[in-house]
Computed example of a mutant assay.
Amino acid sequence: MPMRPALTLLALLLASTASADDTDQALLAQGRQVFLEQAQPSCSLCHALREAGASGAIGPDLDQLKPDAARVVAAVSNGVGVMPPFAETLSDEQIRAVAHYVSSVAGR
């Protein structure tokens, strides 16, 4: 028995949503790894971020700051104050991932 068009559309939307959720979870996991392990020095050394279990006190508390992704990309790429730039040591993909992670979890 063929599916009705509305059911077909619903099935496609559900599959698309599941795929988007999987992609978002993978990007969050990658960003968390950059925050905790891949950036050298580690972001967690200087920044507090509850979701990462980070309690650094040199840089701003990211849970209070709640930066958007563009602000994180700019800070990580170019550095801010005593924070060094990471554009030469992290890939664009890593920078986008950590920006997505921080902007998604800060203050939550």
Rank of each mutant, 00 (worst) to 15 (best):
G59A: 11
P41A: 08
D63W: 08
V76K: 07
L45M: 11
A26C: 04
A70N: 09
L13N: 10
Q64K: 07
F35P: 03
V80H: 00
F86K: 14
L65C: 04
G31F: 00
C43A: 09
L65E: 06
L62A: 09
T17R: 15
M83D: 01
V73A: 05
L36H: 03
S91W: 12
D21W: 06
A39F: 02
C43F: 14
A26R: 12
S44T: 14
V76D: 01
A69D: 04
A57I: 11
A26D: 07
E51Q: 08
D92V: 11
F86A: 09
V80E: 14
V80R: 12
A26F: 00
G81N: 10
G79E: 03
D22E: 12
A87S: 14
S19P: 02
F35Q: 05
V34I: 04
A57T: 15
S55G: 14
C46A: 07
T89R: 12
Q64R: 08
D24K: 14
I58M: 06
L90K: 06
A15Q: 07
S77T: 11
A69F: 00
P84S: 03
E51K: 14
F35L: 09
A11M: 12
A57R: 15
A75E: 01
D22V: 08
S77G: 00
E51G: 01
E51Y: 10
A87P: 06
A26H: 04
L28Q: 15
R32H: 11
G56N: 03
C46Y: 09
S42P: 08
G59Y: 09
Q25R: 15
L14F: 07
L45G: 09
Q25A: 15
A75Y: 02
V76T: 07
G53N: 01
D61I: 04
D21L: 13
A18K: 05
